[in-house]
Amino acid sequence: MTPHVLIMEDHYIVASSVADLTNSVLPGAEIRKAATFPKGLDLLKTGPPVDLIILDMQLPGGDSYGMVGTLREVQPGVRILIFTASEEPKHALHFFSAGANGFLSKTALPEQVGVAIRTVMDDKKYMTEQVHQLVVESFFKKIAPAKVFDNDVLSPREEDVLALLLEGKQSTQIAQDLNMKISTVSTHKTRIFEKMRVTNVIELFRKLKPED
């Protein structure tokens, strides 16, 4: 079966190089490219099912960690490999929490890119040793006693919704700002309220922004 790959990268040379590397790992792969997130989303909606998305974290038109969830709303089982020039420790955990299958720096050697693609295509997680250590540390941090309303118990998408709630925005505005369905916003709000042990936005605001 011919693998279908979607490369979402706005730099032409980088996208072409990744396409060549992908062809060397997956001979005969059907590869499409998108230089913006909306274009990639359109290709995902209108084209044949995709086996792998190689996604630039800073793709124009995207919303960082939220891109993973948006792509999965279209094709839930698609494998997503984040390919970025940003520092790994700062973003890797958030992307894995959002559901990414792998995280790779653009400074990686071609051999590493090949390993990452093979690993993700085998339905395994790919991460560098540095990121693996962060995952281990994060795990032990989370099983240690912590306040229920600690921000780090929220998913990246819930943090996005929380930030907009604290700005006083309504669900319809949040849905527009984050490019998600109103029903999805409502689900995130419910989970936030449960984790924060509040019943409404006013209580949430008071808990996170207490008066001096």
Rank of each mutant, 00 (worst) to 15 (best):
R206E: 15
K147T: 09
S105H: 12
F96H: 05
Y12W: 11
S155T: 15
F140L: 10
N179R: 08
N200L: 01
H11I: 13
V135W: 08
E211C: 02
A144G: 08
S186I: 08
P210G: 07
M57E: 11
K45N: 10
V78Y: 03
Y65I: 00
M8P: 06
V136K: 13
E129P: 09
N101W: 12
T84P: 03
F139W: 09
F83H: 12
F139H: 11
P89R: 15
D150V: 00
D123H: 14
S171H: 08
L55N: 03
V185R: 04
G69C: 01
H91W: 12
L26Y: 02
D212P: 12
V74T: 05
I82Q: 04
N23W: 08
A85W: 02
L154A: 04
F96C: 05
K189R: 14
D160R: 06
N151H: 12
G28T: 03
L44R: 00
K124H: 15
Y12I: 11
E137R: 12
R118S: 14
D212K: 12
I143F: 01
T190C: 05
T172D: 13
H132Y: 13
K209I: 11
E9N: 04
G168F: 07
D160V: 00
I202E: 15
E194N: 10
G99N: 09
A144Q: 13
T46K: 14
A100W: 10
D63G: 01
D10S: 11
G28E: 04
Q130L: 15
L41S: 09
F95V: 01
I174V: 09
G47R: 05
T190N: 14
K33M: 13
L21S: 03
S16P: 00
E88V: 06
I80E: 01
G168L: 06
L81N: 02
E111R: 13
L43W: 05
D122A: 15
N179F: 08
M127H: 14
P27I: 06
V120W: 06
S97C: 04
P145K: 06
N200Y: 02
G102F: 06
T107E: 13
D152S: 14
S97L: 09
M67R: 00
Q58N: 14
I182A: 07
A98M: 04
I202H: 12
D42N: 11
T107N: 13
V18E: 01
V148E: 14
F139V: 09
K33R: 14
E167D: 14
K142W: 02
V148D: 13
R79D: 03
F103G: 07
T128S: 15
M57T: 09
T190Y: 11
P27K: 03
F83P: 03
V148W: 07
A92D: 09
S97R: 13
L166Q: 10
T2H: 09
T84Q: 06
Q112T: 15
D63M: 09
E88W: 00
I174L: 00
I174N: 01
L6G: 03
R157P: 06
P156N: 05
K147V: 03
G114A: 07
